[in-house]
């Protein structure tokens, strides 16, 4: 996908004045507005409890906001998206291939009609040899790859990820970071990625939305203008360090303000 400058990307999803107050009066989100544009890699970065998961659930249509509205200007239905949770969330009774087949199966497709897509998705995450394995035979990182393959198999335009790599070791996480960027490049989707790691958000995203807690809200947006594809060299570059400092500063000032 050719790199479209941030300012020229058409919007796919717009959150306007979203508020979410849970029973008991916890304000998980207050006045959250965010335009997600086609091709963005957006990270939601913030301390625990600032409403990142809640925001993602609202985008996925799993939770209704108390106030505000969510718009899909490109006409995309809320249902056409892929989701990756913090846990791999695989069906233990189904093989790897059947797990990746799930989104198609729920749309009434037969396995044979989408076999190519399923195998291609598994190939992209490097697990084509494991299509007949059951989840319990895989390591944590491999399970997460299956989960990513499942989210991408239908080539959705928007993929939501909630701290997908938080439970993995650093080496695996770096590897999956690289793979995720390559995959995104390949299928040209938009990603909203929740993380509490400054380093991860800078490496992956071109827009970092910094949030603060009590009440959960967006305090600042940091743009990471380093070009893609980003490689391991980027991780050690001065550019990366500078962006990490900027994001970190934004996060700290957000937390002090809270």
């Amino acid at each position: 996908m050719p790199l479209v400058p941030l300012s020229e990307r058409p919007p796919v999803m717009e959150l306007a004045g979203i508020n979410k107050t849970f029973a008991g009066g916890v304000v998980a989100l207050d006045e959250m507005s965010l335009a997600v544009n086609a091709g963005d890699f957006i990270s939601l970065l913030g301390p625990s409890g600032c409403g990142k998961s809640t925001a993602l659930r609202i985008m996925a249509g799993l939770t209704q906001p108390t106030a505000g509205k969510i718009d899909w200007p490109s006409g995309q239905k809320a249902g056409d998206l892929g989701v990756v949770f913090q846990e791999p969330t695989l069906m233990p009774w189904a093989t790897v291939a059947d797990n990746v087949f799930l989104p198609f199966r729920l749309r009434g497709k037969t396995y044979n009609s989408v076999k190519d897509e399923v195998l291609e998705a598994l190939r992209l995450v490097g697990l084509e040899k494991f299509q007949k394995s059951y989840p319990r035979e895989l390591s944590g990182g491999m399970k997460m790859r299956v989960s990513i393959a499942r989210a991408m198999v239908t080539s959705p335009r928007l993929i939501l990820m909630d701290e997908p790599f938080a439970a993995l070791d650093e080496i695996t996480r770096f590897k999956l970071n690289n793979d995720l960027l390559a995959l995104k490049e390949k299928i040209g989707c938009t990603v909203v990625f929740v993380t509490h790691s400054v380093f991860e958000s800078v490496f992956l995203s071109d827009r970092i939305v910094v949030m603060a807690a009590r009440p959960g809200r967006v305090v600042r947006e940091v743009t990471v203008d380093a070009p893609y594809p980003r490689t391991e060299e980027f991780r050690t570059s001065a550019d990366y360090a500078a962006h990490c400092r900027a994001a970190s500063d934004a996060l700290h000032s957000a937390m002090e303000a809270a």
Binding site: R57, G79, L81, V83, F85, T89, M91, L102, P103, L106
Partner: peptide, 14 residues
């Protein structure tokens, strides 16, 4: 049922 799986089924309009 694992609640994340339940959410996943909902997202895919099961």
């Amino acid at each position: 049922v694992d609640h994340n799986l339940r959410d996943l089924f909902r997202i895919y309009g099961a």
